[in-house]
Design a protein around this nucleic acid. Sequence first.
DNA 1: CGTCATGTTGAGCGTCATCAACAGGAGTGG
DNA 2: CCACTCCTGTTGATGACGCTCAACATGACG
Lengths: 265, 265
Amino acid sequence: MSSHSSGPVGVFTFRLNAVSNLSSPISYALGRLVGNVRTFPAHQDIVRQGDRPSQCCVVLRGWVSRNKVLEGGVRQITALHIPSTIPDLQSLMLPQMDHNITTVTSVEAGFIPHSALRHLMTEFPSLALAFWKETLIDGAIAREWEVNLGSRPAAQRIAHLFCEMATRLEHVGQADRIENALSFPWPLTQGQLGEATGLSAIHINRTLQELRARGLIEFTRQQVQITDLDRLTHFAGFNPDYLLSEKPGQSASLIDAYERAVASI
Amino acid sequence: MSSHSSGPVGVFTFRLNAVSNLSSPISYALGRLVGNVRTFPAHQDIVRQGDRPSQCCVVLRGWVSRNKVLEGGVRQITALHIPSTIPDLQSLMLPQMDHNITTVTSVEAGFIPHSALRHLMTEFPSLALAFWKETLIDGAIAREWEVNLGSRPAAQRIAHLFCEMATRLEHVGQADRIENALSFPWPLTQGQLGEATGLSAIHINRTLQELRARGLIEFTRQQVQITDLDRLTHFAGFNPDYLLSEKPGQSASLIDAYERAVASI
DNA sequence: CGTCATGTTGAGCGTCATCAACAGGAGTGG
DNA sequence: CCACTCCTGTTGATGACGCTCAACATGACG
């Protein structure tokens, strides 16, 4: 537990320890680098396609989306990010952003200068491994979204997204489970859900009604309730393996060993 | 230039230098680790979903696809890989594969044991940065595929894939350019093209005819010819920036500096 | 025998339009 | 200061219509 665990940065350092298996000194140092914390309103770009950031953004509260906008104005959401992640970490290695980072809800975000991150990476080489692993998991999620967009009909596509977000939210303690039922906040409008699934807002509306009629999900404003997770999982063809290809803590040994090996040179 | 540059491993070490900006000693060492080179027939899995590989696969000749198969038997191709890449590099960090690696053509592939890669990464910490960067570029390509699958109509979707592959192939010298025309090998059947774009094989067939009728592309068996790259680029809404978010050689300074910084500890 | 080609049919989904519900903000009067 | 209205923008809901694309044919070509 770092001294930051109680503030807004706490969720960040907590995740670094639990999910990314970073050792406490590294996550503590990272947490201390987060500065310039401020609040963004909903539906606002934090980073834009074509930008060349000199700092990275840490999401501390709220949801953000990765998205690209086509010439015609159509927007495709390619990923959803929940708190404690660094959505534009790639700008450290790829200077020009290929997509936008946009707030979904009101968002509290902090910033870490690239220079500080680079310095910390030379001090703790295993940090690069942790970042690489984060990127690999993002990649696995992106692949599953490709399958969703390319191969599943509308109802299953929406259901699959709900399954994925339910799993990810529960994993960071932001979903309430009672037996086989799961409820969690859902800040996306039907229009945004359409942008994420490649469907029109109208068709989203009708398909949601179908899912409700089947008794698979319920909506109370800003909140989704999955009545029977097993049924929804089966309906959507959801397999959670891709979200965390290993049990938490398992890769700690690799990262620790790497740290010791480099330090001993 | 390593001593391997003339053999099949040459394309691998060449790309490590040119694209990944690895220094010659590292790429030379990596090239030496490639062993057990053998040839796979077309349409065969090299690595399967659920596998826990203990080695990584280096594609030396031919094309492979990343793909996932749904319960109903529908296959979604999420990425295409051309020679000189390591498609299952992620198995170093995420032990369980979330997707299949399948040959498209006949493929020559070599293998590097995880243990050797891990050892080399402790010897050259900047190798992790290079691998991370590769993963980030893969991620940028995956995002563009998500946009393709979710937001573009059939004709533009296919045209966009042709633009992407033309650019990537030309980048490694496997496309012939004459003025504004570009021709390159195209080993995918119409069925596989459908699996990559989320369209039925029949609709692929008809849309290809439409593209031919518009004079945008021509087909000779196993070969695609883009008659006017600018026109096709405009038609598809293709912007090549995401493929290499920087000019080759630009990130060499970061990786070199990282190598020196860690070595000087 | 796999791949490409071509016709027919219909389901799935997009587009356009309208309407209700709701949340702010400005102004008004109490 | 608070309550009430009016206005406006956003979201969700619903109907009518048309187009894109999938499903199931059946041949033709290597």
